[in-house]
Design a protein around this nucleic acid. Structure first.
Lengths: 173, 173
DNA sequence: CAGAGCTTTCAAAACATTCTGAAAGACACT
DNA sequence: AGTGTCTTTCAGAATGTTTTGAAAGCTCTG
């Protein structure tokens, strides 16, 4: 496989993955492109490579910066700005997890807590089932949230070792 | 908070969550509705409660059945079909994880493996960076995949205990 | 302060997804 | 076979999302 072909394939694949995960295709593609470029790129470069408009490039670069996945660089003596992506994949993963936790998990947890406040007095089959479901759901989402917090705070080495321990424990049981 | 209000709030919240995760809003709402209903519901019930059309209800029920989250029930002496959701949240989570792993993680892993095949001979800065990124990415995605496999195969009790162990280990370090 | 070179914004256009409702299909019963 | 009840399908409509490109905004430099 040739380099150019591989590059393109990677960008496509990453774009497709993104769109399954609520991240828009172009944004994921821009990220992919920056991930695999040794040097930082200008908006111009990105527009040309991905065949997208200036506005589009700008918008998605901004979103990526919001997510903390991409950085802007000023170069001395140049007006043009350059962009680069965090290359340490573990850090990228942590960043993504941390943002999604903030943006999505937290609000859901809040709602679930509120819902537990429904008056237990009002007892009938439906209320019963409802409360039980909400409580179970809240528990599992909280646990997932806590787990992810640990992930976000761990360094990659520690985390992987812990996972290996779990795997082997599982294998022996 | 009154029951009806709580119910509605829950359905809305679940719908919103779904759309951040590549699941369409209505599908998530139908799932939510079934989750919190003590009895199974007919298509008619669902249409009425969520204010959606027959076709829409049918389509999303089918998708939920595809995901293994909802079951169809035939009742003796009735032609109408009833639908119910798996209420054990741990099972729901496992089911969702297992489907997404199959649908999304596997294809990405496949592409990443293919990309590693780029000729290493062709060495220059860009190729270098590319290969390194792809390899790191592949490693982390594989590890996530393995972890999720363990989750899917574990019972809830075992898994939670393992997580607690990790948490406390982390706390002591 | 005028102009060059770049970035940012935003309304309208293009595109994609989701929903509707009418029609066709399936089935059980007479 | 005919009828009533329910389910499924699907083309077109509605809605939602993304992209474009032109215009407006910066900021440096002569």
């Amino acid at each position: 496989m040739q380099f150019e072909e591989a590059k393109e394939k990677f960008i496509q694949a990453w774009g497709a993955l993104g769109s399954n995960w609520g991240i828009n295709r172009t944004m994921a593609q821009v990220h992919a492109l920056l991930l695999i470029s040794a040097e930082s790129l200008s908006a111009e470069d990105i527009m040309a490579t991905l065949n997208i408009s200036r506005g589009n490039a700008n918008m998605n670069l901004r979103a990526l910066m919001d997510w903390g996945l991409v950085n802007k660089e000023h170069r001395f003596g140049e007006r043009r700005e350059y962009f680069s992506a965090e290359k340490d994949i573990w850090q990228v993963a942590q960043q993504v997890i941390s943002e999604r936790r903030k943006r999505e998990l937290k609000p859901v947890l809040k709602v679930l807590e509120e819902l537990k406040a429904i008056r237990k007095a009002e007892v009938n089959t439906d209320t019963q089932a409802f409360l039980e479901t909400v409580e179970n759901l809240a528990t599992i989402v909280e646990q997932a949230d806590q787990f992810l917090e640990v992930v976000v705070q761990s360094d990659s080495k520690w985390f992987l070792e812990s996972m290996v321990k779990i795997f082997s424990q599982k294998a022996n049981s």
